[in-house]
Amino acid sequence: MKYRRLGRSGLKVSEIGLGSWLTYGSATAEETAHDCIRRAYELGINFFDTSNSYPGAEEVLGRGLNAYPRSSYVLATKLFFPQGPGPNDRGLSRKHIMEQCEASLKRLGTDYIDLFQCHRFDPDAPIDETLRALDDLTAQGKILYAGVSEWSAGQIAEAASIGKSLNLRPLISNQPIYNMFERYIEREDVIRQCESAGMGLVVFSPLAQGVLTGKYKPGQAIPRDSRAANDQTNFVINSYLREDVLACTAKLAELAGELGYTLSQFALAWVLRQPQVSSAIIGSSRPAQIEENLKAIELSLSDDVLARTEDILSAVSGFAPMR
């Protein structure tokens, strides 16, 4: 395994992280989830990501990681989305941040959270209120670092400026969607702004919800055991199941084969080509998937391969920022 610093902080995370969105606590049995967590840990993955909005995921991840020394892994979770019917049961107010940190600590079965992330931007909460609450949690030792997820370049710049003016501990990460098709962080200056603010990127959906594994073929039926065939998980992947996208993945798979790698390994290496990306978060329902994906860290992409990749990807357009 290889590790990268998370932004300007001293924290080091594995280039491949294991996430729990749409898998642990819902679509995958807990025993299988623990098998995946165990194999990931054995292979050197130290970054594990979840959220209070993923049903049952924090509990499953917490129980799975309980077998290992707490200092040996980086545990990340998030808050923002509604946790109840009340007007204060959502967002990034001080009240909600404080209450949800306590709730996540209980569900995870731990004394502290390594990385506590704002799952989305909250236009109803003053940024200084949000940043002060996160800073107070850090001072209390309940979280070690704070980050955000899917914030725009402008929102990140404003938070960095306010935090500096108030002498608060800086945010160290942003978690956006990023893969060969979803590239808004390149177009909208998010990568550059994160670099300026000293924030690393821990990107999710680097395999486009499984489309960049090559399992979905143009003109063929969806595999019965796939994420796209599962009503609990297919609401995200459906946006990728277009003939132009699938035709593109077939060409990308051919290019990956020339290099001696699978499409998923190639797609992860493509994401990790960005020096500002600290970790690419994968989901896994089988330990073997983790073993295959980790081979991506061996692959270095030449300028010629990157140029050929861009030629193939130029046939696909129309993906918008995830908000």
Results as ranks from 00 to 15, higher is better:
2 K>P: 04
5 R>K: 15
6 L>M: 04
7 G>P: 01
7 G>N: 05
12 K>Y: 10
12 K>A: 14
14 S>L: 03
20 S>A: 14
25 G>W: 04
30 E>P: 05
31 E>P: 09
33 A>G: 03
35 D>S: 15
35 D>Y: 09
39 R>D: 03
41 Y>E: 00
42 E>D: 13
46 N>Y: 03
46 N>E: 05
47 F>P: 01
47 F>T: 02
49 D>Q: 06
54 Y>S: 00
54 Y>E: 00
55 P>C: 10
58 E>D: 08
61 L>Q: 00
62 G>W: 01
68 Y>T: 04
72 S>A: 11
72 S>I: 03
73 Y>T: 01
73 Y>V: 01
80 F>D: 12
81 F>H: 08
85 P>L: 03
90 R>H: 11
91 G>I: 05
92 L>A: 10
92 L>C: 08
93 S>E: 10
94 R>P: 07
95 K>M: 13
95 K>G: 09
97 I>K: 04
109 G>L: 02
115 L>P: 01
118 C>I: 09
120 R>W: 09
120 R>I: 08
122 D>V: 07
128 D>I: 11
129 E>F: 04
130 T>V: 04
131 L>G: 02
132 R>A: 11
135 D>M: 08
139 A>H: 14
146 A>G: 09
154 G>F: 06
154 G>E: 01
160 A>Y: 06
160 A>G: 11
160 A>F: 02
160 A>T: 12
161 S>A: 15
162 I>E: 11
165 S>V: 13
170 P>I: 07
174 N>F: 08
175 Q>D: 09
176 P>I: 10
177 I>Y: 14
178 Y>R: 07
180 M>P: 05
180 M>D: 00
180 M>W: 11
182 E>L: 13
184 Y>V: 12
189 D>G: 10
193 Q>R: 15
193 Q>P: 03
195 E>V: 12
195 E>A: 14
199 M>K: 09
199 M>V: 07
201 L>Q: 02
202 V>E: 06
204 F>H: 06
209 Q>R: 13
209 Q>G: 09
215 K>G: 07
216 Y>C: 09
225 D>C: 06
226 S>W: 03
227 R>E: 00
227 R>T: 04
230 N>G: 08
233 T>P: 00
234 N>M: 12
238 N>F: 12
239 S>K: 15
240 Y>M: 11
240 Y>E: 02
241 L>V: 09
245 V>H: 01
247 A>H: 14
249 T>I: 06
250 A>P: 12
250 A>N: 11
251 K>Q: 14
251 K>D: 13
251 K>E: 13
254 E>L: 14
255 L>S: 02
260 G>F: 04
262 T>E: 08
263 L>W: 00
264 S>I: 00
264 S>Y: 04
266 F>V: 02
268 L>Q: 01
271 V>P: 00
274 Q>M: 15
276 Q>A: 15
277 V>K: 05
277 V>Y: 06
278 S>N: 08
279 S>W: 04
280 A>Q: 02
280 A>L: 10
290 I>P: 00
295 K>F: 08
296 A>N: 06
308 R>W: 12
309 T>K: 07
316 V>P: 06
318 G>Q: 08
318 G>K: 07
321 P>C: 08
323 R>M: 15
